[in-house]
């Protein structure tokens, strides 16, 4: 496959999404090191886990002193949407064996979004693969640079990194708040987490908000 962003609009969309999203990787790299992860551990998350919100959750919970199990559980629940994307993509990609393993690894928000914007299956496949591989390359490159940069800095508060991480989360949630119910659910989750913080082990105030998702999800 030859990629030509100048003449092919799918390639253009895919690469611009890949580059922009990849830049966020620098914020993740910095977040990992700020949370006490080594550069290697931070980069391993981008290489192996490769799903932004789940990665931020792992470093956020471990950085706050949470148990590994609550970091894993939170990341897993956040990553469930990728299973739903896989359902959408499988009949279009029609791959098996090692190709399915590779396609699964790059099944994320961005690759699925670019694919579903296209008109036919050939274009959907093209959009999926170029976006997925492109995000993978840029995300990992910038994770490394961000981690390297943050480890050169001493106290993260001096550079405002302690606020940059929750601000990055705000940027991830904002596009998902599409109506009043979403805002209410978000506010209730914030109140719940803050109420539990003084009285429960780290990580518990976050993972238990899933109960709220179930309650609101089952409500008419």
């Amino acid at each position: 496959m030859s990629i030509n962003p100048k003449t092919n609009p799918i390639d253009r969309t895919a690469l611009s999404v890949a580059f922009t999203v990849g830049l966020y990787g620098a914020a993740f790299g910095a977040a990992g090191v700020t949370a006490g992860f080594s550069i290697l551990q931070t980069c391993m998350l981008s290489l192996l886990l490769f799903s932004g919100a789940s990665q931020f959750a792992v470093v956020g919970i471990m950085g706050a002193g949470g148990a590994a199990i609550s970091a894993i559980a939170t990341a897993t629940l956040l990553g469930f949407r990728n299973a739903l994307y896989g359902l959408q993509m499988a009949p279009i990609l029609k791959v098996s064996g090692i190709k399915r393993v590779l396609a699964a690894q790059i099944t994320i928000d961005e690759s699925t979004a670019v694919a579903t914007l296209q008109e036919n299956d050939a274009d959907r496949r093209r959009g999926f693969y170029i976006t997925g591989v492109g995000v993978y390359i840029f995300w990992n490159l910038f994770t490394f640079l961000g981690a390297l940069g943050a480890s050169a800095i001493g106290d993260p508060s001096v550079w405002g990194l302690d606020a940059a991480v929750p601000a990055a989360f705000c940027g991830l949630i904002w596009p998902r708040l599409k109506n009043k119910t979403h805002f209410i659910v978000s506010t209730v989750a914030i109140a719940w987490a803050l109420a539990l913080t003084p009285i429960s082990p780290a990580g518990i105030p976050i993972i238990t908000t899933v109960i709220l998702a179930v309650i609101f999800g089952l409500k008419k």
Partner: peptide, 17 residues
């Protein structure tokens, strides 16, 4: 339910952090 999962988890993370 899945549509609410990222909203509650990420909102809680922001609050705690």
């Amino acid at each position: 339910i899945n549509a609410f999962v990222p909203i509650v988890l990420l909102s809680a993370l922001v609050a705690v952090q």
